[in-house]
Simulated assay, not measured.
Amino acid sequence: MLDLLKLFTQVVEEQSFTATARHLGVSQPAVSNQMRALEDKLGVKLLLRRGKALVLTAEGEIVLRQARRILDNWDELLEQIGTAGPECSGLVRLGASHIPGEYLLPALLADFQHEFAKVQLKLVVGDSLEMANKVSEREVDFAVVGSSFDSEKLASEFWQWDELMLVLPEGHPLAGQREIRLSDLLPYPMIVREEGSGHRRALEETLAGLGLSLPDFRISLEAGSIEAIKNSVRADLGYSFISRSALGVSAEGMRVCRLQDINIRRGFYLVTQRHKPLPVSSQVCYTQIRNCKRSAVPAESGTGCLPRIKD
């Protein structure tokens, strides 16, 4: 029965019998037959096909929640009695906000999979609040996000620091100034991230500490991704603040600056369900990510625009 539940959860994750069969190294009809056997055992229909999509029935939603709980408990049992086996295997479902998911985790996950080749990884990227909700609803095992979430259901562990850098279009009137104060920016259009992002929360918290809020600024655009912000700055829609991690060597067409006497920092956090052990393979992945930290961003802030960074 455990094998049928594992198959069912994988079909739901993949949204495809064919992709599931490919990962398991079996035929597509074999997967279909196993799914039919599970439905026969339970006496209910679990999945419906709508066009090319697979949709859970109401009973399927219940079975999926319980199947994940049963499989997690089984992994925990094996870990506690020491029979998890010398090699990790299974599926690690990882959530991440945009900066960790797009710029920090890919290299770490590549290293992890080189070491644990039998583990399959699924990375879901969205804003920090969305990913925290996915952890809470058991849609992902854990998440790496730009805000701390501590509640009865969730626990957060600090991972590493990030810094938000001021970026200006190259032709911006302030681009040539040696020192830029926050008050200097008030007359000019500003681009911000969407609500729910850790990036926006860090900016709002810094402004609140200075007695300001976003409505005090001229918001020209609210964007849902860092790449959208970069391209909007290059197009001269306004200035913005971008994670140092996301700048890398791709800041062409922008001037990267620090504000005078202000440092906008935010942490990245590992979020899990409180009082709920991770499956064995997910715990190994969690531990490896937790132990791979960059140097912390220095607290002090410099002044003036930095040299242009070319691709």
Rank of each mutant, 00 (worst) to 15 (best):
K6S: 13
K6M: 08
F8R: 10
T9R: 00
T9S: 06
V12C: 03
F17I: 12
A19F: 09
A19Q: 13
H23I: 08
G25H: 07
G25D: 07
S27M: 08
P29V: 14
A30L: 09
V31C: 01
V31P: 00
S32I: 14
Q34K: 15
E39L: 07
D40W: 01
D40F: 03
V44T: 12
V44F: 08
L46Y: 07
L46P: 05
L46C: 03
L47V: 02
L48E: 14
R49G: 02
R50K: 09
K52D: 15
K52E: 15
A53T: 09
L54S: 04
V55M: 02
L56A: 06
L56P: 00
E59Q: 14
G60F: 07
I62A: 13
V63G: 03
V63E: 12
V63Y: 06
Q66E: 15
R69M: 08
I70N: 00
W74G: 00
W74M: 04
L78T: 02
I81A: 11
I81L: 05
G82D: 10
T83V: 13
T83H: 03
A84C: 04
G85K: 10
G85H: 07
E87Q: 07
C88V: 05
S89D: 11
S89Q: 12
G90T: 05
V92M: 06
V92R: 12
L94N: 10
G95C: 09
S97F: 13
S97I: 10
P100E: 14
P100Q: 13
L104H: 03
L104M: 13
L105S: 13
P106N: 10
A107G: 09
L108E: 15
L108P: 01
A110N: 04
F112G: 03
Q113R: 13
